[in-house]
Design a protein around this nucleic acid. Structure first.
Lengths: 167, 167
DNA sequence: CAGTATCCATAAAGATACTG
DNA sequence: CAGTATCTTTATGGATACTG
């Protein structure tokens, strides 16, 4: 049987989200939830910083590039840094902020999943440059255990013992 | 030997993607790149399996729910499993396949990032149910090292010593 | 090189009503 | 409960032309 049921216990009062407001996943998707935003982020991880390079390598129009870059700057994932090529006017390049860099696990876990499930070629590898070993995105707890899906829980703690008020 | 294009710091022969075809990230985004698809996946991780529950908890219309569920089933992330409530006709419920469960790092790393950067409340925690410790999504190599962004490389190996043909 | 401005096509999703 | 059927709005993004 190929089906898997996850989260037997992780419970969570599912209708408590309304009290929490939009969940973090939803908020994150509002920032990087478009194809072009994700690919621009990928490019930034590859070291791309210039407008035209983003447009060409991602394969989108300049209009889309401008829109997406502006949103990512607004969201604090990229910042504009002035630079000047000799003989040229001052321009901006787009460099990752720490917050932007912290999204790497999102993009690389997509990379890994896509490579494993959607690609027939396995010529691409993530590696740890220091030791040369393969790198992977994984879920691990503070005790150092690798956490399989079935053992992953989500807790919704109520602030300082306030009344639950759940219906 | 298998020739390799590494991203130093991050970097790759950026125009080598054309030889590879669409990158795995792009392909993955084609499957789960919409807001509703991602949230439906989140719901599946919480244990939701029924049509109406998906629609209500994700907060989207039934039309969107039907479209997204069908796509996720097509893509092999969910399967339909017949079930029957006493006195009712047979219906299908949507359960995660192993491939669907393997996307957890994508969703949970969004969760973590959103909670850290976009939420003011920190009432939500990922935990390892077996030991109770906090769980996080991280990038680690086969040697067990935690891999910071600066030490993460992507290799593009060419198949079996064929001519590189790189321009 | 780094954009802006228009116009147009498609995709995603809400609202609402109806069905077995 | 589990959908289908319309209709409409908004988001996304392509094509193309123009600008400093």
């Amino acid at each position: 049987m190929t089906s898997v049921t996850v989260l037997q216990g992780p419970l969570v009062d599912r209708d408590a989200w309304s009290a929490v407001g939009k969940c973090p996943i939803e908020k994150t998707m509002a920032v990087i939830g478009t194809k072009s935003a994700m690919l621009i982020l990928r490019e930034a991880y590859y070291g791309t910083t210039r407008f035209d390079d983003f447009a060409r390598r991602v394969g989108i129009t300049k209009a889309a590039t401008a829109a997406r870059l502006a949103e990512l700057v607004d969201a604090g994932l990229l910042t504009r840094q002035p630079y000047r090529e000799p003989g040229q006017r001052v321009r901006d390049e787009y460099v990752l902020t720490p917050a932007g860099a912290e999204l790497m696990p999102v993009v690389w876990s997509m990379f890994e999943w896509g490579r494993r499930h959607l690609s027939n070629d396995s010529r691409l590898r993530l590696t740890h440059l220091e030791c040369g070993a393969d790198a992977t995105v994984e879920i691990r707890c503070a005790e150092g255990h690798l956490v399989p899906q079935s053992e992953l829980g989500v807790e919704l703690t109520r602030k300082g013992g306030a009344a639950p008020a759940s219906r």
